[in-house]
Design a protein around this nucleic acid. Structure first.
Lengths: 343, 343
DNA sequence: CTGAAAGCGCTTACAG
DNA sequence: CTGAAAGCGCTTACAG
C-alpha cells in the first residue's frame, strides 16, 4: 500500500532484488553488475521515485542514520542555537536528529537515553546531568558530550568551553575597566562547568589582589524560578553595597540580575558593572547593552558533529576532547563612566 | 550482539515468541493466555530488561511512534518554545520528535518532508512555506499545520493564532493610549499570517478613523539580514516623522525596530509608541519594556499534539481547525507619558 | 489456551 | 556477471 520497494524495481527490470540492492548501494562495480543492467535499474528507480525504507535497512544493518541530541532545555537560547547547527551539520551527512530536554533532571535524562537506545540511534550528543556517567558508559554507541563532561571519565569525547578561562577573562576585563570590588552570582549546582567558572572567578580576584571574602560569592539554589532568582539577587545586592561589579555565571542569572539591579534603582555600568557568562540575544539590545563572555555556538555545533561522524566512521583514534575559548564581547554594562568636572 | 529479543524470553519461558508478543502487548487476556504463563513471561521480560526493537515493530506495523516537526527555525524563540511543549506532550503519548528547520525555504522544506516520509514518521506538525500545499497533501499521513495554513485547502487541520484580531487589538490599544498616527512595519511576505496582520492593522486604523495613507505601511523584503532591517526601519522612521507609534508585525522586526528607534534618539513610548506582534524574552526586560500581542505558546503546543493524536487514533472526525486568541501584554513602550506642569 | 508460519523491506554471505 | 536464501525482530492472521 505504501511505497514502492526494491522488489517492484527488480520486477520491472527483470532482475533479482539482490542485484537492485547492489546497484542502488553503489556496489554495482564492486559486484561486477553489467553497465547495462545498472543503468536500467537506476532509470527505473528514478522513474518510480524509489526511497529505501529506512526501517528495514536499519533493522538489517543496525544503522538508523539517526543521532540522539539530549540537551538541557531546547527552549533555551544557547541549546536552541546549538541544536540548529547540529541539525544542519548532521543533515550534510544524511543524519536526522531525535531530541529531548532533560530539564537537568537525572531521571528524565535516563528516560531519554532509554528511549533513544531502543530506537537504535547510531550515536549521541549529550548534555549530561549529574550522575549520568554510568548510564552513558553503558550505551555501547559513540557519544560526544557537550557543555559539560565527567572529569573522572577519561575516555569520553566532548566539546566544552574553557569555563575557567572565561571567568578569568571576565574578571580581567572588569578590573581593566576600573572596578575594584567584584562579586559573582552563581548556583549551588555541582556541575563541573559551574565549578570551573567559580574557580576561574576566584583565581581572577586573587591574581588582581581583590577582596575575596565570603560575601563576594553568592550561590543560589538552582531550582529557583525566575522571580525567586530575581528576589534573591536583589537581596544579595542590597546587603552588599560595597560591590561595584557583578559577574553572573549564566545568562539566565544575568537576565534575572538585570531586573534586580533595576528594581534597586542602580545604574548598570556606572554604579554597578556587570558581565554575564554566555551571550543572549537580549544582551546586545538592552540599554546599556550587556558585556559577556560568549560561547562560540557555531563552532560548538560543527565540532560536535565532526567528532561524532569520525567516531561513527571509526576513523577516530581515541576520544577527542575539545575545549573551545570564549570570546569577550565588550558592551556598555562594564563601562564605569567617569564624571567629568563641569566645564 | 545488541539487545535481547522476544526469542530470548520465549526460550527462557518455554513458550513461543507468539505468546510472548501477545502478553507483552497486553493482549494476554484477549488471546486467553493463562495467568500463569503471562506472569512468567512478564517476570522474565522484567529481569532481562527487555525493550522491544522499535525498528522491527515499525517495519511490521507501519507505526514508528515518531512525529516529524517542521518549523521555520528551531533557534527562534517562538519555535523553540513550541518545540519544547510539543516534545513534552508527545512524550506523554510515547512519541518521539524528529525535527527540522525550513528557513522558510521551499526546497529545504520539500527535502525535509521527503526525509521524514521515508523515515516513516506517523504524523507531522508543519510550519509550511509558501507553495507547499501539494507536497503536504501527498503525505498520506496525519498532518497538523501550525503558525500558518493554506486558505484554499479546506480539509487540513491547523492551529494558528488570530492574526487579524491580534493586529486590531494592537491598534485599539495604541489608540486608547492616545496615539494618533500609527504605522506598521511588516515584510513583503505573502504568507497568510502576514497578510492577516496587515489587514487587521488597516481595519484597526479605519475603525478609529486614523490616517491610512501609503506612508503608514512599510513592507521590507523578508530576506534582509538584521542590519538590513534595522537600516531600512531607521530610514523609514526618519522619513515619516509624523508617526507617533509603530506596530511591528513580528518580534524580529520589533527587535530591529528598537535598535532603529534608539539610533535615531527617540524615546520609546513617550516620543514613539510601539507594540510588537509576538512576545520575546527581551521585551519584558528592555527598558522601557515592550508591549506586545503574545501567542499562547503552551496552548499551541498542547493543541497541536492533541489534534495529531486524535487523528492518529482515528477518533477524529474531519479536520480540526483551531484559531487561538492573542493576549495583549501591556508594557511601557505603549505609554504616552503626559508631562505634568511644574508644581 | 498456544504455536508454526508468513511477512514487513532490506542487505549480505554464499553459490554458481 | 547474477540470484536464491537467510535473517534482522517483530506482529498477526490462521490453525488446532
Amino acid at each position: 500500500m505504501k511505497g514502492i520497494s526494491i522488489k517492484d524495481i527488480a520486477q520491472q527490470a527483470g532482475v533479482s532484488p539482490t542485484t537492485v540492492s547492489f546497484v542502488l548501494n553503489g556496489k554495482g562495480k564492486e559486484k561486477r553488475i553489467s553497465e547495462q543492467v545498472s543503468k536500467r535499474i537506476l532509470k527505473i528507480a528514478g522513474k518510480l521515485k524509489y526511497k529505501p525504507n529506512q526501517l528495514a535497512r536499519g533493522l538489517r544493518t543496525g544503522k538508523t542514520k539517526t543521532i540522539g541530541l539530549i540537551v538541557e532545555d531546547i527552549a533555551n537560547n544557547f541549546f536552541a542555537n546549538v541544536a540548529k547547527v547540529v541539525e544542519d551539520e548532521a543533515d550534510k551527512y544524511g543524519y536526522k536528529v531525535l531530541f529531548g530536554s532533560t530539564e537537568d533532571n537525572e531521571e528524565k535524562a535516563r528516560g531519554l537515553l532509554e528511549v533513544l537506545r531502543y530506537r537504535q540511534v547510531d550515536g549521541y550528543i549529550i548534555t549530561p546531568t549529574l550522575n549520568l556517567d554510568k548510564d552513558i558508559a553503558s550505551l555501547q554507541k559513540p557519544v560526544v558530550l557537550m557543555d559539560r563532561y565527567f572529569p573522572n571519565v577519561k575516555d569520553s569525547s566532548y566539546v566544552v568551553v574553557d569555563n575557567y578561562q572565561g571567568a578569568v577573562t571576565a574578571v580581567d576585563h572588569l578590573v581593566a575597566q576600573g572596578y575594584k570590588h567584584i562579586g559573582i552570582i552563581t548556583t549551588t549546582s555541582h556541575q563541573i562547568q559551574m565549578q570551573q567558572r567559580l574557580e576561574g572567578f576566584s583565581a581572577g580576584l586573587k591574581k588582581h589582589g581583590l577582596p575575596s571574602g565570603k560575601n563576594v560569592i553568592k550561590r543560589l539554589p538552582f531550582d529557583l524560578d525566575r522571580p525567586g532568582f530575581t528576589q534573591e539577587i536583589t537581596k544579595y545586592l542590597q546587603n552588599n553595597r560595597e560591590l561595584d561589579a557583578v559577574f553572573f555565571a549564566t545568562n539566565y542569572l544575568g537576565i534575572c540580575g538585570i531586573e534586580s539591579i533595576r528594581s534597586i534603582g542602580l545604574q548598570i555600568g556606572s554604579e554597578l558593572g556587570m558581565v554575564s557568562f554566555d551571550d543572549h540575544d537580549i544582551f546586545r539590545l538592552l540599554s546599556p547593552a550587556v558585556t559577556c563572555v560568549a560561547q562560540p555556538v557555531e563552532e560548538i555545533g560543527r565540532t560536535l558533529i565532526r567528532i561524532l561522524m569520525e567516531e561513527l566512521d571509526e576513523t577516530s583514534e581515541g576520544p577527542k576532547q575539545v575545549v573551545l575559548p570564549l570570546e569577550l564581547r565588550e558592551r556598555e554594562s562594564s563601562v564605569l563612566v567617569k564624571k567629568l568636572p563641569k566645564a
